[in-house]
Design a protein around this nucleic acid. Structure first.
Lengths: 332, 332
DNA sequence: TTGAAAGCGGTACCAT
DNA sequence: ATGGTACCGCTTTCAA
């Protein structure tokens, strides 16, 4: 383990002061042609890399953001991450990903993270609002798919409208009446909004809700198990509005295992438009979320607000559009 | 944005020196009952949190590790992450996740990350060996599912043996001869090893390889598209050895869309044993990887080696066992 | 243009 | 047991 070389080593080697070396590395002060060369020579010959630590301490800035996700997996996170990364690329700012696992430890992890970054993008409401607003007191925070919150910026999509649209489609175009919502809304404000859109469409069509929403984790396995539970119980609905495409895929597998034809015997919709949605048979009717944009916009907000001058300018709140994708699984 | 309070604020408030406050917060030096109380009072009333930056600079230690993954998604990563986290919980060490996206930027990100942590766990060989060994010169690195490398510690599983076992099963128990390996081995040493195990079993049974391995990305969509391509081309194999369960799932969906029965018309195996593997019909014959252990052991190695005293003790290299899970998709 | 020096927020050694 | 202080690596005023 080589001891790392510091700015003083470079200064000594180039026969100048550390201040001058700093001027060269940061590039925002004039240095004579001659010394510039000497310093550069020393820089490369020593292979010097400035310590982020020293910089951060002196500048009171980390040049790093955090992206907080409630779990790995899910096409949404991958897309969001890409968008976030793409926006930050070339800015000199990096970001750390924190994946929520254990709720207990999560608080601690979040607090620790907050001492290492200049801003955070937090997905959902897994992180307790209390701690988030505490942190928001010290740095900009963008909440994605979270509850509305006066203390933080927010980026959302039209979950309500999209889910209502899908439900209306099942109700109107296909004349269904006995519908079921599949997905756990408790910890996910975005799923909560979809559930509300679903319920709103039913109310609007004056269809009484015959079945409580079937809670299931938002994974393929979750959708599979929930659907199997429904079938085991006997008496399936006419249509399924699934919280995500993955849930729909799982439900589809459970139906296929039980010999139930989709959309023949049961119609269904998903949410997200993951890659597989257009590939499978039947292809999935769903609502497309602009994953990449969500991440990109979040990063933009952070970038803008992390510059101290702008910090008092109020909270930014945006709602990105979704797109209904009508395919086969709804019966079309 | 509240200006953060420092150790000097606390010292002033408690009427003691900063040294004494440091003694209290770090807890490794004797302080009289009386002053302890005074300091604690100041601590809580001010809501003081030591700055990681100051600590890191003084201690030359970040109290943080990094976990570097080649993408989100994949049950393996989720399990690995959990194991890693579980081991680190309570040690006072946190970790950052870096998700490889753009190969170009990745080098930079990795280098940046290396200035913020005391050790890293790197999955696969996405990260170029050059940069990794550069970093390994300054801190302990554990490579998981990577190429053997004298400069880093490593954690692997018995990919070769497991894949050979699955292939032998198809060959021996089910008498198949025309087999195909599904999965992209190029960037993934672990998949490469599975492919070798597959090939070894064929050679051993003196079965000539009729088809080149079908490359596909290691996702459900990847498996789907690859299988569909095979079917479009006409003439399918008797059996499929898939690089991962997700690939197998995708292939299964493609078969089902094409009206091909599994395991009736085509037998297949997966790899990983994800949750869905045991749920679907047909249930998936596969090899179980100890996800959690992989992460846990990696973290343990890092923990051990990050203590400066032990850094010269040579490289640790371990290979964790896998377990063959025979279910239905192979024809059993 | 360049250098000396004062911080940034801690830790730890050396006195007392 | 406690305080004073040098130091960690860097940036940035202030003088020269």
């Amino acid at each position: 383990m080589t001891p790392s070389i510091t700015i003083r080593d470079v200064a000594r080697r180039a026969g100048v002061s550390v201040a001058t070396v700093s001027r060269v590395t940061s590039g925002n002060a004039k240095v004579s042609e001659d010394t510039l060369n000497r310093v550069n020579a020393a820089l490369t010959s020593l292979g010097y890399e400035p310590s982020r630590l020293g910089q951060a301490l002196a500048l009171k800035r980390h040049n790093a953001f955090a992206l907080v996700l409630p779990g790995l997996g899910g096409a949404l996170f991958a897309g969001l991450l890409k968008g976030f990364e793409a926006t930050l690329a070339g800015t000199g700012i990096t970001f750390h990903v924190l994946v929520a696992q254990d709720p207990d430890r999560f608080q601690t992890q979040l607090k620790d993270l907050s001492t290492r970054v200049d801003g955070m993008c937090v997905f959902g409401s897994f992180a307790g609002d209390g701690i988030v607003s505490t942190i928001a007191d010290r740095m900009p925070i963008v909440r994605v798919a979270g509850n509305p919150d006066a203390a933080t910026h927010s980026v959302n999509v039209t979950n309500f409208e999209a889910a209502r649209g899908l439900t209306r489609h099942l109700l109107g175009e296909h004349g269904l009446r006995d519908l079921l919502f599949l997905g756990e809304a408790a910890q996910s404000p975005d799923v909560q909004q979809r559930l509300q859109g679903f319920q709103d469409a039913l109310a609007e069509a004056q269809v009484e809700v015959r079945r409580p929403a079937e809670p299931c984790s938002l994974t393929e396995a979750g959708g599979f198990k929930a659907m199997r539970a429904i079938l085991d119980r006997g008496g399936r609905p006419e249509g399924l509005v699934c919280a995500t495409d993955e849930v729909a895929l799982g439900a589809l597998l459970a139906c296929s295992a039980a010999g139930i034809s989709v959309p023949g015997d049961l119609k269904m919709t998903g949410f997200d438009d993951i890659e597989l949605a257009s590939l499978i048979t039947p292809s999935l009717t769903t609502a497309r979320q602009p994953f990449h944009d969500i991440g990109a916009r979040s990063a933009e907000i952070l970038l803008e607000r992390a510059r101290p001058a702008l910090q008092g300018t109020g909270m930014e709140s945006m709602c990105l559009p979704t797109e209904l994708i009508i395919r086969q699984s709804c019966g079309c």
